[in-house]
Design a protein around this nucleic acid. Structure first.
Lengths: 245, 245
DNA sequence: GGAGACCTTTGATTTTGATCAAGTTGCAGA
DNA sequence: TCTGCAACTTGATCAAAATCAAAGGTCTCC
């Protein structure tokens, strides 16, 4: 895992602060928006920015989770595996989401970068100290948990009750709406996941995913520039095929 | 919806309190354990205890959620439906779980009693006032949300990657471990869900659920007294069939 | 530019679970 | 006790997706 620690010098509120978390400068959709300047400084002293390459594990299933992180750019897959190797992606996290399971050292998930991903991480003990001090921070983490819960439940409907065609369309819709959070829904984008990952996200096989993408292309619901790049001529059409009302 | 408001007279800390929420007397696994006596009193003044019969809706999908509730006894199904009627149960809540989606008026779920269920509910505004006052309460709600998120993600693995046989065994295991939280895992219990509900929880059809239950019976993984009552001779065996390591 | 690895697509066939269709069973109410 | 209905089970058939198999593509590294 390539680690690049980056501390840029910057003043906050005219005080002589030695360094500021690069993530927090860039993103306030993460977890830092709720902190006071002093707390932000405290956090930034312990933060580490690093780039994680695709397939690189951020936190292993069953391992001690010793850190929390903001995603600065990129996409992280959260997955679970059965003992025989069957795998399910149970969540995707996009910038500027916050990652980490508060209040437990045991992670039931594997977190892995899907594409090149920059994260800013801080040690568990620092985070937990700040949570105890800053009531707004726990509220922020709570809202993140509730958002992920809503998303997980939406996805359960997709996994349990949609056809392969609807599942693939639902996946494309999710990507279109999350890949570029600053600019809203994208009509043209690169898929952050391989066919194998898409299959693991949808509870399908690679072959079924491929066939359904081909069918969507033939039905003019999407256009395919190359295997990763997709264009959506009509988002309404895609949503309709996805079974989203 | 049959509503029985029940306020029992009881003293707390020797003060002259008019009434106490019956739920809070009985259960501290809910949300009340974190409150001070004064807050508990405040909450109890606004609480309503009622019995909800099976099939009765607690909160409709897309409706305004105007209350929070502790489940005193019983089981509540949380479900989502597609416009064409396909339905997925996205969560089961057992006593003494807390129900309600903080910080939003819009519920994306339908909450419905699966069996006779006693709940103790309080208005949204009272709850939100208490959350603002009592930091421990938000922490308690946060932990509940994280627990539900962990459960949802576990279930996603089941929905996406397990066979019908494993799904049914997983369901039976969930019931065995949750139906009587005070006494741990039960080896003999009544299913709180009909075959149709089980199918909606597992993303299967009624017929498939029935066949798999028959198969589990023939394989001596479970015994069936009647269509609702189940005995599990070996929990290890059941877990193994469920694909739980 | 070519070899090899990996990812993706496509085709043929099989399997799992869905669908269609009767029957049972159990239970509430006459 | 009988009747009628809803819930459940079982059987036959069908269809969607999995599996098995074989090509294409694309990319990296010589």
């Amino acid at each position: 895992m390539q680690i690049v620690t980056e501390h840029r010098r910057k003043d906050i509120h005219n005080s002589d602060i030695p360094s500021v978390c690069a993530a927090c400068e860039a993103r306030h959709g993460g977890v830092c928006g709720t902190l006071t300047p002093d707390q932000l400084l405290d956090l930034s002293r312990h933060s580490t920015r690093r780039r994680v390459e695709p397939g690189r594990e951020v936190v292993g299933q069953g391992e001690m989770t010793d850190s929390y992180a903001n995603i600065i750019s990129g996409v992280v897959k959260l997955s679970k595996v059965l003992s025989d190797g069957r795998q399910q992606i149970v969540g995707l996290q996009f910038a500027p989401d916050f990652m980490g399971r508060p209040f437990t050292r045991e992670s039931a998930l594997t977190a892995e970068a899907a594409i090149d991903t920059d994260i800013c991480s801080f040690p568990r003990n620092v985070m937990e100290r700040l949570v105890a001090e800053a009531p707004g921070l726990e509220h922020r983490l709570h809202e993140q948990a509730l958002k992920e819960l809503d998303e997980a439940r939406d996805w359960m409907l997709t996994l349990g009750r949609k056809t392969a065609q609807e599942k693939v369309a639902s996946f494309l819709y999710i990507i279109a709406t999350h890949i570029d959070p600053e600019n809203g829904t994208a009509t043209e984008f690169d898929l952050p996941l391989s066919r194998a990952d898409i299959a693991d996200y949808l509870g399908l096989t690679i072959e079924t995913v491929s066939r359904q993408i081909t069918k969507l292309r033939k039905d003019n619901v999407i256009r395919i520039e190359n295997s990763r790049r997709v264009t959506v001529p009509s988002m309404d059409r895609l949503m309709h095929v996805a079974g989203i009302d």
